[in-house]
Structures are given as structure tokens and as C-alpha cells.
């Protein structure tokens, strides 16, 4: 995107007012990496939101609260017993990009290869949105990623934080990103959250992205898991159901059939990791 102006509001309300006034010309800028690749006909105005205190990770009422302008490298380095976001952040792009790219930038305008929407769908995250009112809107991941989130922010509203529930006892999380090399865009990203009881799957949230046009939950896979034993045969049978929810697309010279196989293998891996994780967690 070509920029004709660069402004640095001091307050969240000023940023929102500026973006409202600017309309499609205005663009919130945190890491700003995506802006360099956006092709727009008319030059735009960057509204710098990195100085509004939106970069933090806190623990509050059963959830990790990540500020919208928190760089991926901070999320990658954060550690806590009920936390598992670092895994996927380590797999996103390169060290230099992770130092500037933010969680908000990754999810407010979803590119097909984005990894975090997949993980946040599986984790049942909640997004906090500033709409000018004192109390921020809280939107669940299913609703937030039902369509392109950028539309939600067209009127100047701003994402302020992402709430990720603590992983409770018997809950486990696993994610797999398949890419050609460490820094490449994802071919397939999958994520799974499992709750186990006596070796059986009580609850499951499974999501996929990259090889499909938009990240989504795989509800047929979830249905095939719930009530069954957490064993590889069950995972394989459930992964085979993914085609009922997702039409896998060809990627970078790889056929759709190959991507389907890759997605299914990745799903089994993610489910095994989640189950392993859950088994080791008794509190």
C-alpha cells in the first residue's frame, strides 16, 4: 500500500475517530508488514496503533489476555503451565518478522495462509473489540472468523485483545503446520483441542486453514471423535471425515489429492499431540 500520510494517535478513541473519518483510506498499522504487500489504487493513511499500550500478555479470570499489538516473538517466548500458543508462533515466518508482526495483524485481515485463526478457532478464543463505548465487545472465535474479519473493522473499530482460555485439567492442545520450509507460507495448518476422561474424548474442537479458502472448524471430524477412545485408529477415521467440511485445494504445484493426504496426516499428528498433552495434565 502506498502511504500519503502517517499519524500517531495517543489514545484508542483518537485512533478510532481517525479511522472512522478516513474510511477505506485509513489503515491501522501495528507491525505493518502486510501493508507493504497490499495493492490499493489510492494512497492511504497509516494510523500507528503501537503506542496505545496494546502490547502485553496477562492472566485474568481463567484466560490469557494478549494485547492486539503484541509481537509474535513475545507470544513465542511466553511460558505458563496452561499455555500452548508459543508452539505455533515459533512456526510463523522468520525471526525478524515475528519481532514486528502482531497477533492482531494476523487475525484482523485473514490471509488464506494465516496460522493464528486456525489455532484461535480450536482454542475457542474471544476477541475484544473497541467500538467507542466504555465496555468493549467480546466476540467468540466462531463468530469472528465466520467471514473476513476485516469487514468488521471497516468502520474504524479496533481489536484490543485476544482472550485465550487456560488449558484445564485433562485438556490438551496440538497444532501442525505443514510448509515447504521453515519460513514458507503454510500449505496446511491444523489445530485440535481435546478433553479426555478415562481415555475417552469428552469434547473436541478441530480447525484447519491454508489449503482451504478460509480457516474453519471441522465439525464432522469433531463429531467422529467425541465419545470415542483417544487412540490412533479413531484419529485416522476422524481425519478421513475432514473432506465433508473442507474442500482441499491444490497448493504450490501440489495436487488437491496430495494436499488432502497431507491435511489428514497433519490432523492425526495434531490429535495425537493433543491427546498426549491431555493425558499428562491432571490439574
Amino acid at each position: 500500500m502506498k502511504l500519503c500520510e502517517f499519524i500517531r494517535p495517543e489514545k484508542l478513541s483518537d485512533a478510532r475517530n481517525a479511522l472512522r473519518k478516513l474510511g477505506p483510506k485509513g489503515m491501522p498499522l501495528a507491525g505493518g508488514t502486510a501493508l507493504h504487500f497490499m495493492n490499493t489504487k489510492t494512497p492511504g493513511t497509516a494510523v500507528d496503533i503501537t503506542r496505545l499500550g496494546l502490547s502485553y500478555i496477562r492472566q485474568e479470570a481463567g484466560a490469557f489476555v494478549i494485547g492486539a499489538a503484541t509481537p509474535l516473538s513475545d507470544i513465542q517466548r511466553y511460558r505458563s503451565p496452561r499455555w500452548s500458543m508459543h508452539e505455533i508462533c515459533r512456526r510463523i515466518s522468520t525471526h525478524q518478522i515475528r519481532n514486528v508482526s502482531t497477533i492482531g495483524g494476523n487475525i484482523c485481515r485473514v490471509f488464506p495462509w494465516a496460522d493464528l485463526p486456525v489455532v484461535l478457532l480450536a482454542m475457542n478464543a474471544r476477541m475484544m473489540i473497541y467500538t467507542g463505548k466504555k465496555k468493549e465487545d467480546e466476540v467468540g472465535a466462531d463468530d469472528f472468523f465466520a467471514s473476513q474479519p476485516a469487514r468488521r473493522f471497516a468502520g474504524g473499530d479496533l481489536l484490543t485483545a485476544v482472550k485465550i482460555p487456560f488449558l484445564k485439567a485433562n485438556h490438551g492442545f496440538g497444532s501442525v503446520k505443514a510448509a515447504r520450509n521453515a519460513a514458507a507460507f503454510s500449505l496446511v495448518t491444523v489445530a485440535a483441542l481435546l478433553e479426555l476422561k478415562d481415555g475417552r474424548i469428552q469434547a473436541a474442537r478441530v480447525a484447519a486453514g491454508s489449503a482451504i479458502p478460509f480457516p474453519k472448524r471441522l465439525r464432522s471430524v469433531e463429531a467422529a471423535l467425541i465419545g470415542n477412545e483417544a487412540i490412533p485408529e479413531v484419529f485416522r477415521a476422524a481425519a478421513a471425515k475432514a473432506t465433508e467440511d473442507a474442500k482441499w485445494c491444490k497448493q504450490e504445484g501440489m495436487s488437491a489429492e496430495y494436499i488432502k493426504d497431507l491435511a489428514e496426516v497433519s490432523l492425526v499428528d495434531a490429535l495425537e499431540r493433543a491427546a498426549e498433552f491431555a493425558r499428562g495434565r491432571t490439574k
Binding site: 502511504l3 502517517f6 498499522l29 505493518g32 508488514t33 501493508l35 507493504h36 497509516a46 500507528d48 503501537t50 509481537p71 516473538s73 525471526h95 525478524q96 518478522i97 519481532n99 514486528v100
Partner: peptide
């Protein structure tokens, strides 16, 4: 183009000077 900004390695080609 890697430079260090506030102690972190970043790509200078993907940062606007204003940042």
C-alpha cells in the same frame, strides 16, 4: 537489510521509516 530496533532484529525493508 536486518537492523536492530529496540534490541530486536528486524527487516528494514518491511518497516516504514516513520515507524
Amino acid at each position: 537489510c536486518t537492523v536492530i530496533m529496540d534490541g530486536r532484529a528486524v527487516y528494514a525493508c518491511l518497516l516504514y521509516a516513520m515507524q
